[in-house]
Design a protein around this nucleic acid. Structure first.
Lengths: 334, 334
DNA sequence: TTGTACGCGTTATCAT
DNA sequence: ATGATAACGCGTACAA
């Protein structure tokens, strides 16, 4: 009923189970003729390996760590939630995940977190600092597979990146900003930090499309909001003191402050932000925010785990893609 | 190393393996005291079931069918591709999927397909005809679990629907149409068929938001394009003969014809279509199409399978949601 | 280079 | 109502 097994393959190939196994998992040490016989038998019987049985038998336990900034609001909160939601289901598949919170922007702390690791693979969300890159190479040298999460470390030894194509995200933001704005005017870009790679990439994409397709709009120099509500609020308020704003692209966190500032403006600027949090959702609903560009945190977690599993399993091979789809939310589709 | 097993639970609870199993999978026929003991033991030991072992042991083979219109272009082609892509991975989890192609709009043919079924569950994408609804009730009576795919049959005995929230899709289309269009003017809506529920729902949502938020735009009566390129092309051309169009919302298939017609127009109307196919992707790239609303076919297949498995497994219980996320594609994020 | 035999954790089939 | 025990299909020592 349930398909041919290794045993069937063995009989068909006239060899033993062990030989079949060696061929199937190409462990070597098998005569060419035996290899051929087994391969023929596999083809003939239509054998497909039973994953459940395989996993059970070798009872491997995967130990994966997630090193992410702590935080109980905004995007990281969503990420941590997603992690907790997935935890049990993953446990049933013998995947143990450990979440190691770090302090955002505190490189020493993040390095310490990476140092204390004891796992098969790790997903890191950290600043792009030399110390951290070094830590990554060290981990890799020790045989730990590492993937970056949300913010890439492209010049490190990381083997995969899971997250948005941030340049594309910026381009998309620009496209909608440009198409939503009536007439000409000025646009403000607020990054969280200008030394954070993902933010810089978003800025790049945004600027480029603005220049290519919406040259009638003026871009103010990008400012840093420190991912902090108060700072963001202040920046918006002071920018509007000089001239009216037609558009705002908020690249980082601190949307609570943004919403406060924007709702006080009379011709409301077209406002596009990142990450679908309770705050941005509310902003969408009441019209303060026009569009939310979101990266699905559950999808990110799932993708990261899948890549880490493939990595620790096949030692490398299939280059799994970690691109997370950019979700666009507007008032009508939240 | 790899966590407590049923055996550990049994010892801790001072009962046999069989009793533990009965409690864990609530099969009944266990004394309340035993139930309590087992539950306590589970909590105390921190037992988590090993999925691989479970799957292996019950070696159930799930037989799922997908009844979908045949077609080698457009949306169904994407769906069929997704099905083929998933097939192998699903096989490894003892899930056998069979795809049964039908002729679109040919009710007799679809009924025949449903009649010939031999499986545990089926995902149907079919017209909303009484004969089909009847067939669904018959299947259900025979113990086959049925879910609808992409197009719902809400008044049938189907147990779940996997697909878009079509009203929300229509609302979203309207929002972007309204925001992209400059000034006032008229908008054309082309459905595939006005007796197809998903299309009607999209129309509803579109009309409602247009009326609520963009009353300065005039809606032409919806026309039927029969999901056919030639027809769609003709409709667009004849509509523009009467007046210039500011916007087009194409709800069904036939985008090749749409692209041909639109690219001949000089002030190009804002054009929003459904499903990311090679044609619509190309339209996005060359500017003929402004936005593509897409439902991820892989996601739909995965969701359908998950629901069918849960359905055939737990006889009902967890009301799994089959809502597929609406993906919005523009020129900058394809 | 090849083969044998046991164990993985769960479910299911028998008895009791 | 409860318990013992045999599969399930694969990986892997260990033996030959």
């Amino acid at each position: 009923m349930s398909g041919p097994t290794v045993y069937d393959v063995a009989t068909a190939a006239q060899v033993s189970l062990a030989t079949v196994d060696r061929v199937l998992n190409n462990r070597g040490g098998v005569s060419p003729t035996a290899v051929a016989k087994v391969k023929a038998a596999v083809a003939q019987t239509g054998y497909v390996r039973n994953l459940a049985a395989a996993n059970l038998s070798r009872r491997r336990v995967y130990r994966f760590s997630f090193v992410v900034p702590s935080g109980d609001t905004g995007f990281v909160a969503l990420l941590l939630n997603a992690l907790e939601r997935e935890r049990l289901a993953l446990l049933e598949e013998q995947i143990l995940i450990q979440v190691i919170p770090t302090r955002a922007f505190d490189v020493a702390n993040q390095v310490a977190a990476l140092r204390s690791l004891n796992c098969d693979a790790v997903a890191v969300m950290a600043s792009e600092a030399p110390e951290i890159q070094e830590e990554v190479t060290r981990l890799r040298a020790e045989g730990v597979r590492v993937v970056t999460l949300v913010a890439d470390l492209p010049h490190s030894d990381r083997e995969a990146y899971v997250g948005l194509d941030n340049v594309a995200a910026g381009r998309t933001a620009a496209e909608f900003t440009g198409r939503f704005i009536r007439g000409s005017g000025t646009v403000l870009m607020i990054a969280g930090s200008l030394s954070s790679r993902d933010h810089i990439e978003r800025l790049m994409g945004f600027r480029r499309v603005m220049k290519e397709r919406f040259a009638h709009l003026t871009l103010l120099p990008a400012v840093e909001g420190d991912d902090d509500a108060e700072t963001v609020e202040r920046l918006v308020t002071s920018a509007t003191a000089d001239q009216p704003l037609k558009g705002i692209y908020a690249i980082g966190a601190g949307n609570r402050g943004l919403v406060r500032a924007v709702s006080a403006l009379d011709p409301k600027p077209v406002t596009i932000v990142h990450e679908l949090t309770p705050t941005s959702r509310e902003g969408l609903r009441d019209g303060t925010i026009d569009l939310v560009l979101d990266q699905d945190t559950s999808a990110a977690v799932v993708a990261a785990v899948r890549i880490m599993r493939n990595l620790t399993e096949m030692r490398d091979l299939p280059v799994d893609t970690g691109k997370i789809r950019l979700n666009i939310y507007s008032r009508e589709n939240i």
